[in-house]
């Protein structure tokens, strides 16, 4: 099991990079841009085989940041291609990330039913 302090350091460092990008670049960078950037970069790094080592060291510190979600998509696709070929390129990513995506949408819907925005 990954020690907690490694999860803290790796997760913290990944967030730190995001903060520096937000503060140093023009403030036209919104949370949406950050999320898109992280998921894409995570998937690309994962495709190049560079993200798995980070997961081995940091555990949840590497999988919980959205780059880890990109890693999940990329690895799912790669595995599916190995099993099913071309079809796997289309189905693998969503299959691997299905639980997270569905959870976010369903919980979002439920929260909207239960809570009003307080502002």
């Amino acid at each position: 099991m990954v020690p907690l302090y490694m999860a803290f350091l790796v997760g913290g460092a990944l967030c730190l990079i995001g903060q520096i990008i937000m503060d140093v670049t023009k403030p036209t960078i919104t949370p949406g841009h950050i999320l898109v950037g992280y998921i894409s970069c995570g998937a690309i790094l994962s495709g190049l085989g560079l993200y798995q080592p980070l997961v081995n060291i940091g555990g949840a510190g590497a999988t919980i940041p959205l780059s880890g979600f990109g890693h999940l998509l990329a690895q799912g696709t790669i595995k599916a291609v190995e099993q099913k070929g071309l079809l796997g390129a289309l189905s693998g990513g969503v299959e691997a990330a299905a639980a997270g995506i569905t959870a976010a949408i369903v919980f979002g819907y439920v929260a909207a039913v239960l809570f009003d925005p307080k502002g």
Binding site: G11, G12, L14, C15, L16, I17, G18, Q19, I21, M22, D23, P31, G32, I34, L35, Y38, I64, P65, L66, S67, G68, F69, G100, A103, A104, I105, F107, G108, Y109, A111, A112, F115, D116, P117
Partner: peptide
């Protein structure tokens, strides 16, 4: 800031906040 945006909780927050709003 990014500390609560970058983790998957930030992704969930963006979805839930839009839905509620």
């Amino acid at each position: 800031g990014a500390g609560s945006i970058v983790p998957i909780t930030g992704f969930a927050n963006a979805i839930v906040a839009s839905a509620m709003e």
